[in-house]
Simulated assay, not measured.
Amino acid sequence: MHNKLLAMTLACSALAVASAPIIADAQPHRHKVWVCRNESSRGARNTGTVVGAVTGGLLGNAVSHGGGKTGGTLIGAGVGAVAGHQIAKNNGKRCGYEWR
């Protein structure tokens, strides 16, 4: 009986010692991190580019005078395309805090 008690005590002690590092590692140091993910799809960026180009072309045509209407339309379309692409790209970002 005494041997069984001694064997059980040793087994429990060995288990406690073996599991101590696991318990310590189970609770890592965690902190908040600001994370941004780009969830914008290529289709959304292309749509933004087209909408921006059309809108910019119309505005460029409206504000140009006389014989410079073609140039105003082309410059407005170029600026609008770049602006529309950037706006669509930045609207696809999802930012927030995560625990890591």
Rank of each mutant, 00 (worst) to 15 (best):
M1L: 13
K4C: 06
L6V: 11
M8V: 03
V17T: 11
V17G: 02
A18E: 03
P21I: 02
I23N: 08
D25H: 11
D25E: 12
A26F: 07
P28L: 12
R30T: 09
H31E: 13
W34T: 03
V35Q: 04
R37M: 10
N38L: 09
E39T: 08
E39F: 04
S40W: 04
R42Y: 15
A44M: 07
A44G: 08
R45N: 08
R45Y: 12
N46S: 11
G48L: 02
V50I: 14
V51H: 04
V51Y: 10
V51K: 10
G52D: 04
A53R: 07
T55Q: 06
G56F: 12
G56T: 01
G57P: 00
N61P: 00
A62R: 12
V63D: 03
S64C: 03
S64K: 06
S64G: 04
S64P: 05
H65T: 07
G66D: 09
G68E: 09
T70G: 12
T70W: 13
A77H: 04
G78L: 09
G80H: 11
G80S: 10
A81N: 02
V82P: 01
V82A: 15
G84P: 00
N91Q: 13
G92W: 04
C95N: 09
Y97E: 12
R100S: 04
